[in-house]
Design a protein around this nucleic acid. Sequence first.
DNA 1: TCCTGCCTCAAACGCGCGTTTGAAATTCAT
DNA 2: ATGAATTTCAAACGCGCGTTTGAGGCAGGA
Lengths: 225, 225
Amino acid sequence: MSRPSELTRHALIEAATAVFAEKGYEGGSVRLITHKAKANQAAITYHFGGKDGLYREVLRGALHAFDEYSLIDEAALPDMDRDEALRLFLRQQLIPLVKRNQLSRAVRLFNWEMLKRTDIFQELIALEPLPILTTAQGIVDKFLPGTASPEERTIALIWLVNQAYIFVRDYEHLSKPPTNLAFDEDFVERLIDMLARMLGAALAGLHRPRQQKGPAGTGPRLFTA
Amino acid sequence: MSRPSELTRHALIEAATAVFAEKGYEGGSVRLITHKAKANQAAITYHFGGKDGLYREVLRGALHAFDEYSLIDEAALPDMDRDEALRLFLRQQLIPLVKRNQLSRAVRLFNWEMLKRTDIFQELIALEPLPILTTAQGIVDKFLPGTASPEERTIALIWLVNQAYIFVRDYEHLSKPPTNLAFDEDFVERLIDMLARMLGAALAGLHRPRQQKGPAGTGPRLFTA
DNA sequence: TCCTGCCTCAAACGCGCGTTTGAAATTCAT
DNA sequence: ATGAATTTCAAACGCGCGTTTGAGGCAGGA
């Protein structure tokens, strides 16, 4: 660890994590990263083989941060109340709005990957499932009955995972006119509460009787025009 | 219109609309656009003052396409059943999944603007409200009682607008492993139905008692886990 | 015919990007 | 201390980007 080479390695990963979390993979330039890390541009190629290798290391660190700092104990999830689990899940995802720590940077990184998937990310999660996804799947399973189709489960999963990211994505837009939302802790608490009620109702509503209005699934095609 | 200059002008706008709808503003290069339009690169600067001017024209066309081809008659909205309005709204937003027409390209353009807001877009909607937003606001108003706070209305609006885009964003990811969703018309119909039920329940659940687990209307009790 | 405004074109400009180069500096084992 | 391996460094390379240049084509009126 004290070997001088490890020093710049660590500084690069640290700087890259901050930059990629803020700007995404494409938006984060090696010039900015090396400047923040007080290192030479060539160091990235030397230590990581290139920008992609550095990003892979950053993603690994983010996955590790989830193991370490996650609000949700994966093992305790099955025994949890489903509304409580939903709230915990939302709180974890909305952390970047009020905190700046390792967990919030990890959430931001995964948020970017939701928007623009990277091959590097794709390969990484092919080996090991993303913690957020397994958690979300667990929550969905608490709401959907065993009779739900795989397709329904998949849609619900994708849907749930994206719910909090709507507000994480770029809250700077929302805090300026015409929206003017103030993202302080009180607001985020209200947001979590409101979202928890909405998402809970949405998921709970899934295995209720369908719309009485008509045969929704096989109804007339309106896409012809 | 038949003046030779109008010909390349129109070809440029046409090509630019397709390119920007597919790749967004930053991702769409003038070289690709001019190649598609069989025009010279300098023509963009000549006719529109630059890439931004061309994009402004594309956005104007998209707004016009909404006026022209929208599935939702803004005037008829207040008298519509709220679930029906929700379904129509979702159908309109999910059109890009199954059709490639002017409306679907407009939806895609606005989808990109949801992800990465452009100054050009920002200025445009400052003058005139976005049709999608007013429609969504109308639907939210159908669900939320007059007693709801402005903050709640705002959050619900932002939330609703983003719901369909989750699936529009990049359905190519979802149609490949490990998701493997087939985006044919039948599937999109089922998706609309499922989302309509979920979002309807979510919005309707908002002006119900808060996280009380008691009231019988809110859903099944959580005796299980 | 000549001129004048409109329009097109190939080429080049300046910039930021990720990466490579080759030598200097530093570290480490012998 | 010495030689080899490791690590840093400033500079440059090649590429794609949006834009500019300046010459040239092409009308229509005097």
